[in-house]
Structures are given as structure tokens and as C-alpha cells.
Design a protein around this nucleic acid. Sequence first.
DNA 1: CATGAATGAGTATTCATTCAT
DNA 2: AATGAATGAATACTCATTCAT
Lengths: 204, 204, 204, 204
Amino acid sequence: MGLASYRKSISETKRASILAAARENFLTGGYSRAAMADIARDADVSTATLYKHFASKDALFAAIVADAYTATENSLFTDIDGKSARQVLRDVGDAYATQQFDGRMNELLRVVIAEVPTAPHLARHVYENGVLARYEQLISVLDALVKRGDLKPHDTAESARHLAGMVKEFVVWPALFAPRFEKPADLSAKIGACIDAYLKIYGA
Amino acid sequence: MGLASYRKSISETKRASILAAARENFLTGGYSRAAMADIARDADVSTATLYKHFASKDALFAAIVADAYTATENSLFTDIDGKSARQVLRDVGDAYATQQFDGRMNELLRVVIAEVPTAPHLARHVYENGVLARYEQLISVLDALVKRGDLKPHDTAESARHLAGMVKEFVVWPALFAPRFEKPADLSAKIGACIDAYLKIYGA
Amino acid sequence: MGLASYRKSISETKRASILAAARENFLTGGYSRAAMADIARDADVSTATLYKHFASKDALFAAIVADAYTATENSLFTDIDGKSARQVLRDVGDAYATQQFDGRMNELLRVVIAEVPTAPHLARHVYENGVLARYEQLISVLDALVKRGDLKPHDTAESARHLAGMVKEFVVWPALFAPRFEKPADLSAKIGACIDAYLKIYGA
Amino acid sequence: MGLASYRKSISETKRASILAAARENFLTGGYSRAAMADIARDADVSTATLYKHFASKDALFAAIVADAYTATENSLFTDIDGKSARQVLRDVGDAYATQQFDGRMNELLRVVIAEVPTAPHLARHVYENGVLARYEQLISVLDALVKRGDLKPHDTAESARHLAGMVKEFVVWPALFAPRFEKPADLSAKIGACIDAYLKIYGA
DNA sequence: CATGAATGAGTATTCATTCAT
DNA sequence: AATGAATGAATACTCATTCAT
């Protein structure tokens, strides 16, 4: 109602539109080719306003990366009650695939990897908050399945990497190499095959 | 003709030194940060000479990528006689790891992925001549092992992707996220564990 | 009227704090590097308030210069009764040195000189209200000394410039060339030497 | 005759025209207001060529300052044979005045002083190579006059500063405060008066 | 055939000033 | 009367590519 809150809402609207425009620019063209002027134009603000919100191009990109990975927090946890181990793991795999494709995480990953030589801290951030964090979520799920007796007791951390490696082969890897790689129709089946292979080894 | 061949050898020497300098520049800083002037300086030629050999920066980068992947041709084939299936697959895995680390293929991969939005044809080339070509080599080896009775008959193409996915998790993935990721001391053991998992599923 | 005067005093307080902040910014970094936003922040007001008080950056700088030189009015006049000519002139010289150093007039001078191409009227103002005004004060003193018989009758205006030139050589000149030139310990002695030279020429 | 010397002469021509254009821009508008693009246009080169010759705006300005003060080397020395002390000192004074006015040294001084907060090293350079170097030339002349018996033995260093202070009062000081201060018609007479004052004290 | 000087379009960033609330 | 968010014009500097010699 007051002036302050009015301003705040305006400001947050602008910030959001800047972030959206920047995300679009960074994801489609990569860091270098995204021009601050273009981002400002797409966000319907002046470059000066852009710089009021984000002190530099680096900072803007870092904000986008941070935003993307705070949104994935706990996103892979799933309820195991009343579901078979196979079903639980397929749910996890499908959630992961949805994130990577619909959330454009594969494209983001590409840009982050591209900037490793110039911004290694960002890649580290992604590795820790994206890759490792989701590993831990997967390991929790595996541990729960072991506890319930659905999986043989084993080193779940190591096996998680094997499982994840197989799944990434279909979910992430091809998407890194093509500009607009869409989720393939048979993706869920491919993930299922990875899980079946996994269960052949560790299934109780 | 003596003069002609002398000139030709000079020219090829220059071409090689350009390629070497360009490779170094592209791999360490990425495409955008590699400046044609720097490459010319490092190669001890003028920029004009550089452009005589390669019509554009894009063409130069493409040549580097092509060179890298012609060198990997048939590199994963191995003789299976008198070796256990486990040993054969470890030989293949170790050869792959050596290529990726010592041949700086991980770094090259990073740059190629970075340039997907601007040079998708290069990424396709790498996918076809690098990724898929080596898949076929791996599949040949697996087929031979099936034939010899070391592996159960199965869809070797699909299983090759599972095996490769697990191995990449240790060989490629972490290297994409760190500027100067060195081959870890326990890498061979990690690859061994992937192969053991594979054999648990498909071993005869 | 109580409210009106309260408002007025608030306003004058703000004006004063703006002037102080602006002075600090202009003197330390020069005109170009002083940013209106910084000045507003240092003065604890908004930029809009800043512009309510001073219509432009130019106007603000002009106000600072005007303020500085109204403060020097009559500052060099001194009572000659019961003091030797040498003592009188040393008092004048020391007062001048104090103004230039403690009042940061040397720094202000530097900025005014810097802005001669863009704001010649300011430099003229300083020349007239600063340089010439103090000349007249000095001439008055010299005339009084002539009248008292301490100095030979002569062209006091011309001689004042000679005396001032010698003194500036130690008081102003070096301060223009160093960012934070402090008053040297032997400054008073140097000024004394200038006065002695002057008295050798014009002393009775 | 060769390619190399042809290129060198072209290059030196461009360098000279850049220096001239830059000098004009810096002297008339000051450092901040001189735009590299304007300088390039005035010098009939592209901005890129400008940057090939001078790595930065700072470096360009430094080159101008250095050029100006190497040109003044030994410029105040004069032959004393067969000339009265008064004449010798007037020759020195006139040479100095010529430099300051015709060589636009007063304008340059203004810009250097303006940049003291941001480029104190340049001011130091000017002080040492301009101010102090010419002091030493003046002192040499004074010493020679003492030796010849034209001046009483005395501390020539201190007296040189007094003499220079008086002269600057007419030659430099007013020029700092006005955009296009021309050499006044009576300047030589004013300098003569300073010298006469000086000789009243130290003349033999 | 080789050179290196020259280019012009492009990029991130800054700042005095205004205006809706 | 006071705010602070917003602006648009300006600026230093870079780089792939070309061309006269």
C-alpha cells in the first residue's frame, strides 16, 4: 500500500523480467554472444536499469545459475510407500529428466561448461549444488530401499554413480551436443532399461 | 620440383605450427577468448599467412576438431586373444581414459559443447566421428566377447551405452567442470568397478 | 511560522551537508570523477533532493567555489601597530599559507584550473575574488607601511606581485603537483626569506 | 627503399598525426573531455589504429607530456659572453616565456595539474623534467654570472626560486586561469622588472 | 608468397538528470 | 517536499578480417 512496497513490487517485476530475458539470451547463444544491450531491450528496461539490478554481466549470469539450482532443491525426493523399487527409481529418473529438459537445465549446463575457463567458481557451484546435491537425494532413496529390503545391502554411493551415469547417457549427454535437443519419445523406456540393469545387480 | 616440394614442406610446417598454436589457445580459453592475432603470434606467422591457411576462425577451429578425431580412429580396438573379458574391457576403458586425459579430449569437448549454439555442425561431427565411432568400436569388441562365449547374448548396442555411461561418469563428467582436471590416481580402479558391474549383468 | 522556520532550518542543514559532501568529492577527485550519486549518498539525501538545491553539477561546483572565496574576504588584513614591517609581512604570509593549506584552497585551485576549458567564468571568478582581492589586501598593507616610513615609496602594486610570486613558489606551486601535499615544516622560514628579499629591495 | 622502411615511415607519419590530434584535443578540452574516437577522427585513423600505437588513453597522454618535456631540454642555456648580466637573464626569461606561450606549455600544465588526483606520476614527471630541470639550467647560468663577478656570491639555488617565482607570476599564473591567454604585449618589460628587482639584491 | 598495418563494427559500463509516487 | 528508480547518450577498448607493398 505504501510507497515503499509499491516501489518494491515494481522493482521485483523488473528484476524478474531481466532475469527471464537474460536467461533466454544466455541459454540460446551462450555467455559471450549474449549482449547486455540485447538483454535490456528484451526485458524492456534501459541498460542503466539493468546495471542497477546486476552489477555486471558476470553477476547477472551467476544470479541465473543460482536461481536455477535453488529451484532443484529436494526435487528428487519421492515417497516410497506402496511403490515397488522399480517404480520408485523410475519416478526419480522421470523427475530428473523433466528437470533437465523442461527446466532447460541441459542448456544451462552447456553454458556453464563453456565458461569453465573464465568462471570456474560457477562450474563448482553447479557441481556442488546441482550434481552432488542430487546425488545425495538419490543415495537417500537407495538407502531407504535397502532398509525396506528391496535392494541388497551395498555401497549405495558408488552404485548411485553407476546408475546416474547410465541415465545421463540418455538424458544429458545427447542434449549437450545439439542446439535444441527435445526430450525423445522413448526416453522413459530408456531410463527404465537403465534401472532394470541396475536392479539386476542390486535387486534383492 | 625440388623447389616446389621445399615450399610445400615449409607450408606444411607452418600449417602444423598454426594448428598447434590454435589448439593451445582454443583449449585453454575457449573459442571466444582465443584471438587470431595471438594464435598467429604463437605460431610465428603473420595474421595474413594465418588466413592463407585457414579462411576464418571458424574454419580453423573446425580443422582442429577434425584433426583431433581422425587421430582417434580405431583407437579402441583391441586384441581379445588370450585375455579374459574383464581384461579386454579394462584395456578398452584405459585406452579411452588415456585419450580423454592425455589427448586433452575433455578440454576439446568442453569447447565444442560451448560452441553448439553457433557451430552445431561441429558438435554433430564430434558426436558422429567421436562418440558414435567409438561406440561402434566398443560394440565390435562386445560382439566378439559374446561370440567367444564370455558374455551372454544380448543387445550389445544398448549395453554399450550403459557401460559407456558409467565410465564417462568418472572419465569425462568431472573433467568438464574443472579447468585443469587431472587424471585421478584411482581412475583405473573406478573403471574396473564399472566393468565389474557390467559383467554382473551381462557376464556369461 | 514555527513550522516554516523549522522547515527552513532543515533545508539549510541539508544544503550545508550537500555542500560539504560535494566539496570533499570535488577536491579529492576533481570535477569529472565526482559523481552526483556519490555526493548525494555522502550527504545523506536523495539525488532528487540534491537537484532541488542545486540545478546542475555545474551549479553545485560554482556554489562551492563561491563559498570558498567569500570566506577569504578581508582575511589578509592585519594590524600594523607596534609591529615591524618584517613582522607585519610575515603575519600576512602566514595567514595566506594557512588559508591555502588548512582551508584546502590549493586543492580547490587545482580543480578550478582543471575546469578552465569548460567553466572559464569560474576561473575568472576565482581570479577576481581570490587572487586579485587578496592582492588588494596586500597592497593596502604595503601602502600603510610606506606611509609609516618602513618602506621606500614605490609602485606597491607591481612590488606586491613580486612578493606574491616568490611566496607562491613555496606555498602554491608544489601543492598543485602532488595529490596530498602537506604544509612543509620549514614553510614559515621560506616565506621569511622571501620577505627578507623583498625588504632588501624596498625597505627604507 | 625496402618494404620495412616504407612501412616505418608510414607508421611514423600516423604516429605523428595521432600525437598532434591528441595534443590538440587534450590541450583544449582537458583529459576527460578528450574522446579517443574524436582524436582518431582528427588524426584520420581508426580507433583500432590509435590503439595499436598507444595502448590506452593514459599512455597516449603520457606520450604527449613526455614529448613536450624532452623538447625543452637545455633550452634555457645561453651564452653569457659579451652580454651584461641583465641581458643574459632577460634572454633566459624571454626563452622561458616563449616556451610557455608558443609551445603551449601553460595549457599542458593545466591539464597535467587537472590530472594530479588520477595520474600523480605524470605530474611528478613534469615537475622533475620540466620544473626542476629548468631550475638547474637557471642555476648554472647564475653560477656562471657569479663566477664572472657580475653577481655577488650567494645561495644561487634559493635565489633562483625567488627569481622564478616572480617571473611565473606574469608568465604562468594568469595563463592557468584563462582558456586562451595570449602572451601580453608588455610581458618582456614585466620580466625585465623582475630581473631588475633580482639584481638590486644580488647584483655586484 | 609473406607481411603487418589498418579497419569498423561491436561490447560492457558509467553518469547527469528526470519523474511517478 | 522527498524519494529512488529509470533513462539514454556517451566512452574506452577489442577483434576478425583485408590489403597495399
